[in-house]
Design a protein around this nucleic acid. Structure first.
Length: 419
RNA sequence: GCGAUCGUAGCUCAGUUGGUUAGAGCGCCGGUUUGUGGUACCGGAGGUCGCGGGUUCGAGCCCCGUUGGUCGCCCCA
């Protein structure tokens, strides 16, 4: 590999916060996606595909145009027609938009699932990228707690089948209906105002912008105040209590373990009732592995009819970091072509192996006498060598004794006339 | 937007209080062994030490700036 120093061309760098995946991690990623696709079918969730780009208004409106989120954390740009376009930062808003613009109300209640890349203009850190990938499941047009419970059981089964359920806890809360939520919020503001002097600087800012967020402040200074704040329970209406009770009863019936976390909140106003996160302590600061909730107000924010809905999303990279290394199929045959004259014969053999559903690869470049060495270093069921003796290709195979693959390979070689 | 920390070969990393010609393993290339074998042995190529200034007789090492990665804060739909 020689470098031409005279004609130096600067290599373009990858965009900040994007990642390239090869081998082990790509396999993990793929395993997560495949498991999700299999499990979502078990629950009757339809596959849905929505665009990666949407008019900025789709996300701005669904998010309420309030927070930092819209102003500085979306990946937005103008297209050539001058329209503001945003790379999707989440699935829910796009799916909700599709639900309205395509008249999918006719299918309500609609259970859908998807996965793919999302984009947020943020500072990268462990488990957080500017382009990242999520699994997503939504139930649109159902106001039944059965939908919430089903989604949670689905999520729980997914994590179990990925083999990571052990280190992961389902934490669950209710934000009540609009009436409960408003009453609780008012009580919280009152509580925090009374302790204004003891709050951290960050939390003072939250008090104006997003008081519920003070509840999960990480600042030790805030903890006593947050911990002594009133729970929502005292403010829940009867309906809200019944709803939450029905969700937890569904979890218990299905054998899903959960923990109440009365401190779990959602900043945005369209969230109602169920809020949940599956959390782990194995991912540093990014402990949430899967999260979601009921967002009965969102579709209205997009100009659609009042539509109850609930859903969750999970970061594929985070799940991929947690799972054990998937057992990818071991290569069936690795072939060392020890003489260039044997290459055509090798090509014939390898094509036949592959046509017979046997994975195979060959080493036929570089030093001829080193090819066998390289082949031995590649793990495969059968090690095959091809030499050129007396103007003829000579094949030899080695494998573990009584290998079924070995028998198959020998049969194919016999049929090809190799001895 | 803020903070901490790290950038040495294609990769993973050593590199002494600042001191001649910057090292190892893996990978790559070549040689030895012409074999029911060979995950071996020997050798070679490959580095403006992220980039730009500064201090010094002398900088991979110290200082300043800058850029990129990592981790954290804010935010987290």
């Amino acid at each position: 590999m020689s470098k031409d120093k005279s004609g130096k061309i600067p290599t373009p760098q990858a965009v900040r916060g994007t990642q390239d995946m090869l081998g082990d991690f790509a396999d993990r990623f793929q395993h997560v996606v495949e498991t999700f696709e299999r499990v979502r079918r078990l629950y009757g969730f339809k596959r849905v595909e929505v665009p990666v780009i949407e008019p900025t208004a789709v996300f701005a409106r669904s998010l309420g145009e309030t927070t930092d989120v819209v102003s500085k954390e979306m990946y937005s740009f103008e297209d050539r027609g001058g329209e503001s376009i945003t790379l999707r930062p989440e699935f829910t808003a796009g799916i909700a938009r599709a639900y309205v613009t395509n008249g999918w109300q006719q299918f309500a209640p609609l259970k859908v699932a998807t996965h793919g890349p999302l984009f947020r203009y943020e500072r990268p850190q462990k488990g957080r990228y500017r382009q990242f990938h999520q699994l997503d499941a939504e139930v649109l047009g159902s106001d039944s707690p059965l939908a919430d419970a089903e989604l949670l059981v689905f999520a729980d089964q997914l994590l179990k089948e990925l083999g990571i359920a052990e280190g992961v806890t389902l934490t669950l809360n209710t934000l009540g209906d609009a009436e409960s939520r408003d009453a609780w919020r008012a009580a919280l503001v009152e509580h925090f105002e009374a302790h204004r002097g003891d709050l951290s600087e960050d939390s003072l800012a939250r008090l104006d912008k997003n008081p519920l967020r003070i509840l999960d402040s990480k600042d030790p200074k805030d903890r006593p105040i947050a911990d002594s704040a009133p729970d929502i329970d005292a403010f829940l209406t009867g309906e809200a209590q019944d709803f939450f009770g029905a969700v937890t009863a569904g979890l218990d019936a299905a054998g899903v373990a959960w923990e109440r976390n009365a401190r779990l909140v959602r900043g945005l106003d369209y969230y109602r009732h169920t809020a949940f996160e599956f959390v782990t302590d194995r991912l540093g600061a990014q402990g949430t592995v899967l999260g979601g909730g009921r967002y009965d107000g969102l579709i209205e924010n997009l100009g659609g009819p009042p539509t109850p809905a609930v859903g969750w999303a999970a970061g594929i990279e985070r799940l991929a970091m947690l799972i054990d290394e998937p057992r990818t199929g071991l290569l069936k045959v690795i072939m060392a072509v020890e003489d260039d004259l044997a290459v055509p014969a090798a090509q014939k053999v390898i094509a036949t192996l592959r046509a017979n559903d046997l994975s195979a690869d060959m080493i036929a470049t570089g030093s001829a006498r080193k090819r066998y060495d390289k082949a031995t270093k590649i793990n495969a069921h059968v090690l095959m060598s091809l030499r050129w003796v007396d103007d003829k290709p000579v094949v030899r195979t080695q494998s573990a004794p009584e290998s079924e693959v070995h028998t198959q390979v020998r049969t194919i070689l016999d049929n090809l006339g190799f001895r």
